[in-house]
Write a protein that binds this DNA or RNA. Structure first.
Lengths: 167, 167
DNA sequence: CAATATTTTCAAAATTTTCTGAAAGATACA
DNA sequence: TGTATCTTTCAGAAAATTTTGAAAATATTG
């Protein structure tokens, strides 16, 4: 397998994976392209290499910057903006996890808490509260665990992983 | 808030959350409906309550059974099939995680391994290998950790969570 | 076995999500 | 300031996903 072929394979696979992670295909592909690029790329380079439109490129680069997965890099003597990817796997992962925690888990916890306010007394109300309560408990524990993991630095994280795996 | 309102709110929210978890809206809503139902429901009941078509109902019930999130329950004297949800939060979570591990993480690991076979020697090849290798290492560790967590029973899981949270 | 009830299938329709590209908005340079 | 280059926006187009419902298949009952 030649380098170019390998890079393309990586970009394609990463794109597919991304769609399962709250990231759309193009956004994931841009990230992948920048991850395996040895130099910063301009919006134009990205457009050309992935065969996508200007607007699509721009929108997704900005989303990636918003997620802190891609940074602008100024290239002296160049007027265009150039971009590089965050290459630290742990940072990439933790930023994605953080986003999803904020956008999915935390809103769900708020809703579950709200649902505890259901009125009435009968058995069916109790059963409902019980189900909601179980899920809430679980969600809160998961949230706290993620929080703990996220504030740890990479080394800490690998230590935790190792403890779990070797246990 | 009345019980009915609370149940509907739960079903809607769970439906939205589901779409972020590789489960489509309807599939998640059916699961939610069964989770807060005090008795087994038939496909017809589900159709009526969620206002969805027969085909949609059938397809998603079967997907849920395939994921072991919903079971058939035979009601004596009834010709229809009735369904109940898995109410153990830990089981629900672990089955979803297991599915995603099999369908996303493991295929990615295989691709990353394949990509290590890139030919050539230059610096750019080495850089590519380094990126791929970092991701592969991380993916394998995550996979092993998930495996460990999944084969643990619920108590074990909560113990692990607790250790992490209280650390 | 025939009649009826229930479940399953799947092509077409509806909906949702993503992408395009022309136009408007910035920014840098002379 | 004028011109050229680059970036952003967004309405409409395209693509992907989900849903419908009629028809076929299957199961149950008498």
């Amino acid at each position: 397998m030649q380098l170019e072929e390998a890079k393309n394979k990586f970009i394609q696979s990463w794109g597919t994976l991304g769609t399962h992670w709250g990231i759309n295909r193009t956004m994931a592909q841009i990230l992948a392209l920048l991850l395996v690029s040895d130099k910063p790329l301009s919006a134009n380079d990205i457009m050309a290499q992935l065969n996508i439109s200007m607007g699509n490129t721009n929108m997704n680069i900005r989303a990636l910057m918003d997620w802190s997965l891609v940074y602008k890099e100024l290239v002296p003597g160049e007027r265009k903006d150039f971009y590089i990817a965050e290459k630290d796997v742990w940072k990439v992962t933790s930023r994605i996890v953080e986003h999803r925690k904020r956008k999915e888990l935390e809103p769900m916890i708020r809703i579950l808490e709200d649902l505890q306010n259901v009125e009435g007394e009968g058995e069916s109300v109790e059963e409902f509260k019980e189900v909601v309560n179980q899920i809430h408990l679980f969600a809160v524990k998961s949230d706290a665990t993620l929080e703990k993991i996220l504030i740890a630095d990479r080394n800490n994280f690998f230590n935790i992983l190792m403890k779990l795996v070797l246990k």
